[in-house]
Nucleic acid binder design. Structure first.
Lengths: 141, 141
DNA sequence: TATTGTTATACTCTATAACTATA
DNA sequence: TATAGTTATAGAGTATAACAATA
């Protein structure tokens, strides 16, 4: 008999929070917080965004995202470019420094996780990969 | 050809952080933070712990856990009982109020997740359940 | 009027350092 | 000396409210 769905949900929530906390503890010393790093990755993968778009994508308030973007801007990792059509907006995009930092850092930051995944069986890795897709789907409903 | 493991790691990290953030946004109004809630669940599932044990289990500093425990103690959800053998220690355990709050709240807090899981296919649910086990394993290495 | 971005402000959670009591 | 717990303090990240500029 399979577990009740509510219990599965509880298991999943605990696993997700614990793994998130564990991953957070494995910062490399690039001085980027998770939130900052995820913004850089988003801009790298999906191109320029406005502040509001970034805030909505990461489900964070606009002031909070503004602060994150300010930090990254001060470090020269991204720039705000005035939007030609709508002067309220600015389009936020990675600088070259930002792009190369993302590329260089992704593997470094994932080193621990990659190592752990390497110790799983092939079957387990397939499951985790599929689950990652499913969880990403859940997350943006 | 399967994805490189490093890329799988990146996908998993993003999925975990996004889902964690999403779950965090679905608090019910019981006034418990994630950290507080996880402590209650831990005590419920695994019995009394010392402060240091709780801190280590949740991979959080002792002062941080102390603060969390203080909040829960003030709310009458747990108590510190002096250890008979070692007077430096106290054993932290749920009160009746704490126990019934956990039981009552678990389902409420998981309502959103349960609903989402209910919309997955049986196959997807199996994958997620297996992945939850695997991730929990990864998290406490 | 509504929307985009920003500033001001406060709250929560976290950590490190230093302290007390006990082992 | 070492360990369990606590207090003091500071930093990072978040939110809401109020505001400016623009649509």
């Amino acid at each position: 008999m399979p577990k009740p769905i509510a219990e599965q949900g509880n298991d999943l929530r605990l696993a997700v929070f614990r793994l998130a906390r564990r991953l957070r503890a494995h910062h490399t010393d690039d001085g980027l917080s998770d939130g900052q790093f995820v913004v850089l990755v988003t801009l790298h993968l999906h191109g320029p965004h406005t502040l509001t778009e970034l805030a909505e994508r990461e489900r964070v308030s606009a002031p909070s995202m503004n602060r994150t973007v300010n930090c990254l801007e001060e470090r020269g990792l991204l720039v705000r470019e005035p939007d030609g059509d709508d002067r309220r907006k600015s389009n936020i995009r990675l600088t070259e420094a930002g792009t190369s930092l993302v590329t260089a850092t992704v593997r470094k930051r994932d080193a621990w996780l990659t190592e752990q995944l390497g110790e799983l069986s092939d079957e387990e890795r397939v499951i985790v990969a599929r689950a990652a897709e499913i969880m990403a789907g859940l997350a943006h409903r």
